[in-house]
Design a protein around this nucleic acid. Sequence first.
DNA 1: GTCTATACGGGGATAGAC
DNA 2: GTCTATCCCCGTATAGAC
Lengths: 177, 177
Amino acid sequence: MARPPHAREKVLLAYAQLLVEGERAATMDAVATRAGVSKGGVLYHFPSKDALAEALLGRFAEVSAADVKAMQDDPDGPVRNFIRTSWETDADLDPVYRAVMRLAHAGHEGALGMLESLHDDWLRELETETGDAALAKTVMLLGDGLYHQASMPGRWSQQQFSDLDELLAQVDRLLGR
Amino acid sequence: MARPPHAREKVLLAYAQLLVEGERAATMDAVATRAGVSKGGVLYHFPSKDALAEALLGRFAEVSAADVKAMQDDPDGPVRNFIRTSWETDADLDPVYRAVMRLAHAGHEGALGMLESLHDDWLRELETETGDAALAKTVMLLGDGLYHQASMPGRWSQQQFSDLDELLAQVDRLLGR
DNA sequence: GTCTATACGGGGATAGAC
DNA sequence: GTCTATCCCCGTATAGAC
């Protein structure tokens, strides 16, 4: 957090947004325009495009750690927390997660590694609650499915399920509750 | 099918492969090299890069129609067929599907539309078998989860489940079988 | 039908003014 | 700390030879 120069923050945000719209759309020029600064201004804060990606990954590390913590602390348990946060799209993690996913799709090794690591953390929590590896993996798959749908640009099948409860009912069924 | 000039086929295949490795990697130059022809050779068969994308979508229409048909005709029923084919990665559809997904991620409208349409077809078949819309959507989500994992470059969590049977057992449980 | 040569545009990055 | 000007590389596409 730590109040960094406001412009830097806006640039990073613009970069993340543009990534979600398509990795190709995230040019230095487009980032500058959206952030309301000039190309040179962007390059001042981030000396290269890769520096921009690294900064995004740093942000990702922060929010994903917080996400795992929230999963552990949720009174409803990790499974329900996981399904809920995979469903909701306005969480802290979501926009950053989707941006990093684009980087991974584009072949960025660091992005790929961090996603895998978060994936592992999630799975560990799910296994802890369910005590059943196969079951945990199945819940994981449901979350991945939601992210798959969310990863599409535009408004792909936005409302597959009418609401979160309809989906949670299915999860309960799977858990034999 | 119809035996088109062999080179054309090789070019299209190379393009699809490169797309999966990363949309940015699929340059005309890279396609030419992988297909074993020159840049000019590629441009002879496909007058523009967009023509290459259109040809891929045409191929996708063919194999996805065949996929839905196979789903309907499978003696095990649409659900098991869907889960099995989402799990397996060597099917006819798979490489083309993944390539088109990259195009969609890059913001290609046509690719997005065709994926949505196939998605709708799948869902209809699942609903027909289960007679339960929410259940069908849940199965759909599992398949999407598998594709999400498969959509990552490299060997992301290649074997989440040790084998297909472990996953099918979970599906049976969900269906109450 | 396939290749070489080349024109053209866009994106990343540097230098230096303000 | 932010901007303008500029260079260079790479990717697409055209022209035309073989």
